[in-house]
Design a protein around this nucleic acid. Structure first.
Lengths: 209, 209
DNA sequence: CCATAGCCTGACCAACCGGTCAAGATAATT
DNA sequence: AATTATCTTGACCGGTTGGTCAGGCTATGG
């Protein structure tokens, strides 16, 4: 991301502070949205003076953009599991597991993404139109091949993908609602049960099992 | 909602302006979140001076709370369809159709709800703990009865409900992402296909068909 | 040890925000 | 017509926000 080839120490300082700021920003943006988040809050959480934030990220929007892009990269990377699978049971099953794990480990990231898309994706529209569109097209072809090979029922691949995203990200984005209904945070067993439920329903739903 | 029993004309003015303000507020809150929304923006969209908003809704939070509650009422009401159904095919099928229709007609409301829950439900936590919890418990019993009667497979009722909410609301909350991938707004046929896909996958996923 | 480029930060500012208020307009009541 | 209750609104205010900047600090290369 940085374009200044400097001596090593300097680079370390920069990288460390940028990471610190990005982590704090992810949390604050997730908790308050872009408009509700303040640079002061992020600075306090990162343990740095506010002016230092503006040294690394000129504007609030620059910082926000970086947070959103990081999450997108995580999701894209996690999706590679699907490709080398022999069929939907393994491929989609593993994809569900991976996405549920991300919902559990990076709920803030998921929320920032949801916030961004909900508000018309003003910052990452280009990502939607390029990276996400390409990725989706590739996965649609994969699903169509599985259908043609008789490995699953004839379902619309796009809407299957939407359901996968919706069902898995719901556990991050609506985690608070789920925890309220669950009378407390989800335990390991709860998460296992959630993952199994989603896998079972969807894999049976597409006639793969 | 109002508690002042007045002569008719006055009441009409009040009701008309409150509706006007609430509609504008729903849109602005959906587009910008609570923190990003401004009373001035809502006032402009409603075509009223800002001070007039504060006459009807003392604070920004009062206005926001009313918007969220309205949406919640719509959802609760739409869910009654499930109860009088003989089995999951009719009950859950109709519920999916109703919720997809709401996602189509009230996407802004859905987004405001999502925004509120994502940020820890600071305003409607009591609703989650009372109304929603009761409603969920009732529906869980209904689903368990259907399972006991052999009308559907043994799935976890809570996670089935989460999947129903996730899959249907996704078309409102992530409508922008879907429209981008779809190269444009969804047509009547697109919505029909989406609804059918969700119904087919879920009903088969729970072994009801 | 010096010079320099990168890093740090307290103090500051213009812009904007939610909310107030007093005074005027309008409709209902007597 | 006079009185009263409700509605309307421009002007205003204290507090907060994103962003700036000058000047000090520190690591690094010569």
């Amino acid at each position: 991301m940085t374009d200044t080839p400097r001596p090593l120490r300097r680079n370390e300082i920069r990288q460390q502070n940028e990471t610190l700021i990005l982590q704090a920003a992810e949390k604050v943006f997730a908790e308050a949205g872009f408009g509700g988040a303040t640079m002061q809050l992020i600075a306090d959480l990162a343990g740095l003076p506010k002016a230092n934030l503006h040294y690394y990220f000129p504007t609030k929007e620059d910082l926000y953009r970086q947070v959103v892009r990081n999450i997108f990269e995580i999701w894209l990377h996690a999706a590679e599991i699907m490709d080398n699978a022999p069929g939907p049971v393994e491929g989609i099953g593993a994809y569900i597991e991976a996405k549920m794990e991300i919902s559990r480990r990076h709920p803030d990231g998921s929320k920032v993404w949801a916030y961004e898309v909900m508000h018309g994706a003003p910052v990452i529209q280009d990502y939607l139109e390029t990276s996400l569109r390409e990725w989706t097209a590739g996965r649609v072809r994969l699903i169509e091949r599985w259908i043609a090979e008789g490995k699953m029922a004839r379902v619309d691949p796009d809407h299957l993908l939407y359901m996968l995203w919706a069902a898995t990200q719901h556990y991050a984005d609506f985690g608070h609602q789920i925890e309220t209904l669950n009378h407390g945070p989800l335990t390991d067993a709860d998460w296992q049960k959630a993952t199994d439920s989603v896998k079972t329903m969807i894999l049976r739903g597409i006639g793969a099992v």
